[in-house]
Amino acid sequence: MSEEQKTGRRAFIAASVGAAGFVALAPGVKLMDLAQARAPGESVSGKVRWGMLIDTTKCATGCSDCVAACATENAIEPGSGRPAQSSQWIRKIELKEKTGGHRELSLPMMCQHCANPPCVDVCPTGASFKRADGIVLVDRHICIGCRYCMMACPYQARSFVHEPLHHQNPEVPRGQGCVEACTFCVQRIDRGQGPACVEACGKSGHEAMLFGDLNDPGGEIAKRISTVASSQVRADLRLDPGVRYQGI
């Protein structure tokens, strides 16, 4: 390791410690452990699998702070066309049980970051891919806009950009003619933060969203998943989604 890289790693760890101090104030946000922090120039590790646990009993009907935070972080604006032509990386689904007491539930739905993602299977160019740490992304450089992944996704989590965009966040490139979806705020993860939606949910006091490394046995999310009953949406498809729901 060169001297420069060492300095880089030290600076990064220092920054991460600072970020951890800040984030500890925002409940509901669980950071990656410092042992997993990456130095610049170091690739993401397959030892990590990012995931989310959503407690539907805490998620409030009518609250859409997660959706707003996503839109702010990723610069998602409503388009000029019909509502169905605008991008939605995360949406709130309101559920009402058809039988019995008509139990009502509210939950956020987004890319489930499957371990066996159908969008990656069907993508002709390989633009849909799964990063080593389990985040499913679209490489817009090679996406041709065929929308086959949108046909294949069981969660309808993907959107097609229907018109030219001008107000992108410099860290979140997005553009006309490509398909996109929730990235778990990969730009934040790469600098040691959690997704914006999770942070917003914590700030709102609901603390319905927990983010972390599913593979880390000591981590909060792995502990919670091993102790409380959680479910996967469309578990029958055996896609092993990284987003789990509690209380459905």
Binding site: A11, A19, H167, P170, E171, G175
Partner: peptide, 16 residues
């Protein structure tokens, strides 16, 4: 710049 923002934006990577 079909996708990337051609203007400088907010501070990025905490690092280096």
């Amino acid at each position: 710049f079909e996708c990337h923002q051609p203007k400088p934006g907010k501070a990025r990577i905490a690092g280096i």
